[in-house]
Write a protein that binds this DNA or RNA. Structure first.
Length: 413
RNA sequence: GCGGGUGUCGUCAAGUGGUUAAGACCUCGGAUUGUGGUUCCGAUAUACAUGGGUUCGAAUCCCAUCAUCCGCCCCA
């Protein structure tokens, strides 16, 4: 035999036995987001590398070491590692700035990141996400989080933890960074290697380091007081408290996590995550936040925006799975042409029906019917002669003879 | 990029140096020549990740490679 070819590391087939659940996720997305006023947008899977360098940020891990990038006709092209940058690009390029605000867009599709695969992490994975443009008021933040919560609820996922935080605006965040750097300066030598690098590149990300020795340093009172201080400016603080107020009024249970720092550079003010306890170490189902300067950074006008993305594989592993439904009927007959005709007739009426194309023995066909279908539709010599069929309920073993045109009525009630 | 675990039929899984490598599920056939799901019998002609090594002898011990899973990191 020839050598078999395997899937690429970190990628997976979505197999027929799982497709019902995937289609369910997609169907719920369509319905819920439509209700919330979102329109689907489909952007290319490949984009100019520069889009991600400028959009996601070149200090992020995603851009630094996780992108699938290749050259074609002297252009640098990258498989999208996330879709916010692509949506923003399209928003600008297609003049959506001139549409009535808010502009609400949702997407779903594969993303690519060159990372070491593990539980809840693949190199090709799927995200579903929402982006809302044009509203700077905190009501937008609350609505966007509500949209996420509604979608999760529609999937039967209720008991998830919503965490929120505010990163402030570029001005107050910069001050905060400086204060963190100052207070940690004496301890610099004691920080782990990663943290030393973060100290320069993005001090905000020092905070969620899990190395014990670093955590001990962060626990020191004088340092802790800086880390946990309310650094955000008055405007940001007011925005943040409004968001929380709205969430409370909408009945969203959330907790504040001051260490919730997103690894993407474009976020400002509100950031949030929705987590599960049943996912192992990759426990975030949803991550998002406000990105008021991204549109401008990518060459558009200054348009505020906010959005989130969910990992569909992670959702998949949390969703209650239902067994695939059985066929409505299986035509059992040793008269193949008649069986074919009856099958076609029933299908045209909307039933899911199969027949035995191999014309096996009657018992074999019935056995197959019992395995695959709710009803056996028996078509023998007598039935053909009288223009009837015998319908056997394969669960209750009751069998009745009905007129051919009454099959639909009998099966569907 | 760094750690740790694991690789035996399509799937699950026994077997820890010694004749033809259990078993179960799935699939297919038969018992049952127009009535299934239970039961019984049988079949799938060479499944020990790959390549080396140790040994009289390796699925079993050692090394390497590959794959996969888990953790760090980061994120969805």
């Amino acid at each position: 035999m020839a050598k078999i070819i395997n899937v690429i590391k970190g990628t997976k087939d979505i197999l027929p036995q799982d497709i019902d659940t995937w289609q369910f996720m997609e169907q719920q997305a369509l319905e819920v987001f439509n209700r919330y006023g979102y329109k689907e947008i489909r952007t290319p899977i490949i984009e100019a590398t520069e889009l991600f360098a400028r959009g996601v940020g070149d200090t992020t891990d995603i851009v630094n070491k996780e992108m699938y990038t290749f050259e074609k006709s002297e252009k640098s092209i990258t498989l999208r590692p996330e879709n916010t940058a692509g949506v923003v690009r399209s928003f600008i390029e297609n003049g959506m700035t001139r549409q009535t605000f808010p502009v609400k867009l949702w997407y779903k599709g594969p993303m690519f990141r060159y990372e070491r695969p593990q539980a809840g992490r693949q190199r090709q994975f799927h995200q579903v996400g929402c982006e809302m443009f044009g509203i700077k008021e905190p009501s937008a933040d609350a609505e966007v989080i509500l949209t996420a919560a509604s979608y999760l609820k529609s999937l039967g996922l209720d008991n998830l933890t919503v965490e929120v935080n505010s990163l402030g605006c570029p001005t107050c965040r910069e001050k905060y960074k400086q204060r963190i750097k100052e207070v940690l300066k004496p301890e610099f030598e004691n920080l782990c290697e990663d943290c030393q690098a973060r100290y320069e590149k993005n001090p905000l990300r020092l905070l969620d380091c899990k190395v014990e020795s670093c955590q001990k340093i962060f626990e020191k009172p004088e340092i802790k007081s800086v880390i946990y201080s309310d650094f955000i400016c008055e405007d940001c603080a007011e925005h943040y408290s409004k968001v929380k107020e709205y969430l409370k009024q909408a009945g969203v249970v959330y907790s504040e996590n001051k260490l919730l720092v997103r690894g993407l550079d474009y976020y400002n003010r509100t950031v949030f995550e929705i987590k599960s306890n049943n996912l192992g170490s990759q426990n975030a189902v949803c991550g998002g936040g406000r990105y008021d300067s991204l549109v401008e950074n990518l060459g558009g006008e200054s348009v505020p925006a906010i959005g989130w993305a969910m990992g569909m594989e992670r959702l998949f592993s949390l969703i209650q799975k239902n067994p695939s439904p059985k066929l409505d009927g299986f035509v059992v007959s040793n008269y193949t042409p008649y069986a074919l005709m009856l099958t076609q007739e029933l299908r045209s009426k909307g039933l899911c029906v199969e027949f035995d194309m191999q014309n096996k023995k009657f018992t074999k066909q019935l056995e197959k019917a019992a395995k695959l279908a709710k009803y056996a539709i028996i078509l023998g010599e007598d039935e053909i002669k009288n223009n009837t069929v015998s319908i056997k309920n394969l669960e209750t073993s009751t069998q009745i003879n009905v007129k051919r045109e009454d099959v639909l009525k009998t099966i569907k009630g």
